[in-house]
């Protein structure tokens, strides 16, 4: 139960965070909704990160950054919410501020301090090891890129061209499948989508911007 001692810089960082958050809230209540408010918010956020980081075990750093990302999003959400008035922002404000409070608890629960341990006891914190730990970040990024590619391909070429292409490329380039089985994969996907959606269900699937543009060029 004996956590690391709380150092002076940590106290300072926490103080700056609290002040910044208060300033953010006060200015919003005064109906000052400018982008300039991002400045105290960012300072407070960075100060908090600086304050907390030394108290978190190295293995949990990626979780810490994620938790801070969550908080940044919540503060952004609050900033947007203050643009509205009355009933429109009533619930979003409750939800946003509750979120910030929970997010602070979440961050503290990652620290090796007495507070961190206390939060664990009350809420039942994270499992000792998140299932994601120990994954290869490069592979994850590659996968995100592949996924984003699929959307871009569909947007450009439409489902009927992009889908088989995507399946083929993935199987061939990432999965290390043979040319023949990758081709089969692509053709099978196309057949499935075409037969079910276009032929049986009479859907007109998205044609793709590039294809539509080309068709416009060809047609009179």
């Amino acid at each position: 139960m004996n956590g690391a001692p709380i150092t002076m810089p940590t106290k300072l960082g926490a103080g700056v965070f609290a002040l910044a958050l208060a300033a953010f809230a006060m200015l919003h209540l005064q109906a000052v909704h400018q982008t300039i408010l991002a400045v105290p918010a960012a300072i407070g956020w960075a100060a908090a990160l600086y304050a907390v980081r030394p108290m978190v075990q190295k293995e949990k750093h990626s979780s810490l950054y994620f938790a801070f990302g969550v908080m940044a999003f919540l503060i952004f959400f609050l900033h947007e919410t203050y643009e509205f008035t009355g009933k429109v922002r009533y619930f979003p404000l409750i939800v946003g501020w509750t979120g910030v409070a929970l997010s602070v608890l979440d961050i503290l629960s990652l620290t090796e301090t007495r507070i961190g341990h206390a939060i664990h006891t009350v809420f039942g914190g994270k499992l000792e090891e998140a299932p994601g730990e120990g994954r290869k970040p490069m592979r994850e990024i590659a996968c995100f890129v592949a996924m984003a590619m699929s959307v871009v391909l569909i947007w450009l070429l439409g489902f009927l061209i992009a889908s088989p292409l995507f399946v083929f490329l993935w199987m061939r380039m990432w999965g290390g499948k043979t040319l023949r089985s990758s081709l089969y994969g692509g053709v099978f996907t196309l057949a499935f989508i075409w037969v079910l959606f276009e032929w049986l269900l009479q859907y007109e699937l998205y044609r793709g911007e590039l294809v539509l543009w080309l068709m416009d060029m060809i047609q009179p």
């Binding site: 699929s150 992009a162 889908s163 999965g175 989508i193």
Partner: peptide
């Protein structure tokens, strides 16, 4: 995985 993931994703 490398057959299932791309096919399920596009469908």
């Amino acid at each position: 995985a490398h057959i299932l993931a791309p096919t399920v994703t596009v469908v």
